[in-house]
Design a binder for these strands. Structure first.
Lengths: 110, 110
DNA sequence: CATTTATATCTAGTATTCTTGATATATGGA
DNA sequence: TCCATATATCAAGAATACTAGATATAAATG
């Protein structure tokens, strides 16, 4: 992953509405959510939400699919994975014992 | 984890110098690095680096220990873990199949 | 206790980002 | 084609963040 994209991704997540959106979409899973429904769910105005969705999209954190005249958004798990991998790069090489608990916490047993 | 802290952490990581610092400290592992050495390694002025280290510290991403008249900084792996857990919360409940690859990528075999 | 070294804080100018009203684009239906 | 619905873009004022010079604090040393 390019550092520039990583910075964009973290900047995207540093804003409350956008963090809420990504967590909402992560919970929504493969079904995703329509842009309008996201705006309603989080009580944010339409154009503000559209701007924020665009920021998340540019940062590689969400995908979307047009569906009729609506647009369905999904958390981009591949993008998220590469972001987290970029952050943890060389963690194990330097300190396996410190690294392990961090990574273990992310292994859910589903 | 409190959402406010999560937002602070992502904001901290959205700035190039601070992202570089955390990745440097993650690679440095348990030995950490002295504040001054971090500044030299990344070619950033002393006071700017001090400010940025303070931001990372407030965000729960680094720890420090005074060592004589220097201060040694470490990546705060526990803080990082809780941040990532906060982000991925309920991922499995909603979509195990999408969630798994993300988490697997973070499991290093060291 | 004066000096040196290492780090932290304060302040102000500059730059970036956020929100929102207004408006544009895109799709579907009558 | 005309209208309604869904989303995106534009522009500008307000708020926030970044950097760096100056200076303060903290610890070691002579």
């Amino acid at each position: 992953m390019d550092k520039r994209i990583a910075l964009e991704a973290f900047a995207a997540l540093s804003q409350e509405t956008r963090l809420d959106v990504l967590r909402l979409l992560i919970r929504a899973g493969g079904e995703g959510m329509l842009a309008g429904d996201i705006a309603v769910a989080l009580d944010v105005r339409q154009n503000t939400m559209s701007t924020n969705l665009a920021v998340l999209h540019r940062a590689g954190l969400v995908r979307n699919e047009r569906q009729g005249r609506a647009v369905r958004y999904f958390a981009d798990m591949a993008g998220l994975r590469s972001l987290l991998s970029f952050l943890m790069e060389d963690c194990c090489g330097g300190a396996p014992d410190l690294c392990r608990p961090v990574l273990d916490a992310l292994v859910c047993d589903c």
